[in-house]
Design a binder for these strands. Structure first.
Lengths: 130, 130
DNA sequence: CAGGATCCTCTATGATACTG
DNA sequence: CAGTATCATAGAGGATCCTG
């Protein structure tokens, strides 16, 4: 993990450098909705805009669109337009998106396994502070 | 991951419900610095506040303190004060924090493996849009 | 050294209205 | 249906000064 190179030739990754790609990873999945969209698309095959909208509780049109655009730009999802009379648009995970889905599943598993501990710690902390 | 049950009997977690704990997981690691702090603490043993501050490029005092407090509250790190003449404070991952570190390593690995693909997709997308 | 307290600035996110 | 455009706002994040 060298932060020494500016060219990036021999350097691997330095999460602590402001310019490291791994920081952009956090941008990609760290935002409020991207992870949720990826997991939603992982549940089944292609999903329509409206399906996603219904499935992901609380997302606004703007945020859903913005998130999908970002994921498309990053090569994580594909956007397929079918020019029928009411237009139909399907979103689907790319292979790259599927690989990220695996990570999201790890996150999900961690949450399922340890979230109660986090809650307990939080309660204890708050009680001690009060 | 059933989103189908309204009764909640058989349902485990529904990431798509606004109240699901998994959303709070995203809060815990999705913010700009928490993940970085965890990875930093995973590099070696306990670290002092100033060490972390130097290691994590770009963090402000406020954000570092705030992040550490949050992680402590969630039971992911411990805070140990040594009342020497200039006070000394060490932060260290708890077992729970270590388990999350594992996930962070998955994320890091994914980034190292696929970030170039993301960059390529991004470049292509931007070129096509121009 | 390790923060606490303030003030200030964006950015992320949302609500609403409109369109091909 | 699947968005785009616009306006509005809370809160994340940062700069700075101060203290035990």
């Amino acid at each position: 993990m060298d932060a020494t190179t500016a060219d990036g030739s021999a350097a691997r990754f330095d999460v602590f450098a402001a310019s490291c790609p791994s920081r952009r990873l956090l941008d990609a999945i760290g935002n409020k909705w991207a992870g949720l969209v990826i997991v939603a698309l992982g549940l089944k095959g292609p999903m329509r805009y409206s399906e996603l909208s219904l499935r992901i509780e609380g997302v606004s049109q703007k945020m859903l669109t913005q998130t999908l655009r970002g994921l498309e730009r990053d090569g994580l999802v594909t956007r397929t337009v079918t020019p029928s009379v009411p237009v139909r648009v399907d979103y689907e995970l790319t292979p790259l998106g599927l690989s990220l889905l695996e990570i999201m599943r790890h996150l999900k598993d961690w949450a399922e396994t340890h979230m109660s501990e986090v809650d307990a710690a939080r309660t204890a902390y708050d009680r001690a502070s009060a």
